[in-house]
């Protein structure tokens, strides 16, 4: 008999528990009195559960207006192991907007929170909290001889905040940004470095962009001319197609683009000296011309 009872007890112990285990719910409440319109109150709820249980997030109260006078401002959550179980801590920050005309009792209603364990869930009930709110002002100030001028409290004087560190940081950051902007402008030959002799192709790439944007035969001619001037500047003299070999020997950085540069010169020859204007654009379409200028500009920057 005794043996069979012990067997049954052992079975019951082995059998899986039906749900999560909420061991205790403990609240640490703020003072229950002395609240005015707009005051905040912070409640801390500690829920002790089984080791693997966790709070179902969807069951937590939502931040925002809870009812017409109460707002849940924030909810902070943490959990830590405690002994053989787990302690979940919730910090609920409320703000009360009730404007009572006499000291009055208000209640934050109770909430239920679902705890999920490995085999099911259970609810933990956060109890209601009752506190007393008081009025801020007299109900009939006229009776005590107050006027509109004396009745209104003066504004709170603004508190100067120390911003020295932030200001210094901002100034340093702005200074560095300006310096880097100048360096970048110099490297990319932006204004005011746009006439920098060492960056003729960067300048040409920009001018070609403008010229091609205009479109038409004139735009294409202007774009070709811009690149010719860049070659002239880079070579230090006027560069004809026949001088290309010498130029590429003196500027090996542009050696990779030789075939495209040759096509540029042949297109330019067709446009300016041939009688077929359109032929140039088929030999070197505007998009490729633009790309060539960009490539040359890049090589030029990389070389120095």
């Amino acid at each position: 008999m005794r043996a069979s009872l012990a067997f049954l007890l052992a079975l019951a112990a082995l059998a899986p528990s039906a749900a999560a285990e909420v061991r205790s719910v403990h609240t640490i409440e703020p003072r229950p009195f002395g609240y005015f319109l707009g005051d905040m109150l912070e409640r801390t709820v500690e829920i002790e559960t089984g080791p693997d249980d966790e709070i179902v997030q969807a069951s937590l109260p939502r931040t925002g207006a809870s009812n017409y006078w109460l707002e849940l401002r924030a909810i902070a959550q943490s959990s830590a192991r405690q002994g053989d179980g787990r302690l979940h801590t919730l910090k609920l920050t409320y703000q009360a907007f009730y404007a009572p005309i006499d000291p009055r009792k208000q209640t934050i209603p109770s909430t239920e929170i679902t705890i999920r364990g490995p085999n099911g869930s259970e609810t933990a009930r956060i109890p209601p909290f009752t506190f007393i709110m008081s009025p801020l002002r007299e109900i009939f100030p006229e009776k005590s001889g107050e006027t509109a001028e004396t009745f209104l409290r003066p504004d709170v004087a603004p508190q100067p905040r120390r911003s020295g560190g932030l200001r210094t940081g901002a100034l340093i950051a702005a200074g560095l940004s300006a310096l880097f902007l100048v360096l970048l402008a110099r490297d990319l030959a932006w204004w005011p470095f746009h006439r920098r002799p060492a960056r003729p192709f960067s300048r040409a790439a920009r001018e070609i962009g403008h010229a091609l944007a205009k479109g038409g035969a004139d735009g294409y001619r202007a774009a070709l001319l811009a690149l010719h001037r860049a070659f002239d500047t880079a070579a230090g003299h006027r560069l004809l197609a026949a001088d290309l070999d010498g130029f590429l020997t003196a500027h090996p950085e542009h050696g990779d683009t030789r075939s495209l540069v040759e096509r540029f010169f042949s297109a330019s020859r067709a446009v300016f000296f041939g009688d077929a204007q359109r032929e140039g654009e088929t030999r070197l379409p505007p998009s490729e011309l633009k790309e060539l200028a960009a490539t040359l500009a890049r090589q030029e920057r990389a070389a120095r």
């Binding site: 010719h228 001037r229 002239d232 230090g236 003299h237 006027r238 330019s268």
Partner: peptide
């Protein structure tokens, strides 16, 4: 002359 006068 040829180094100075622009082409084209």
């Amino acid at each position: 002359l040829f180094e100075t006068v622009p082409v084209p």
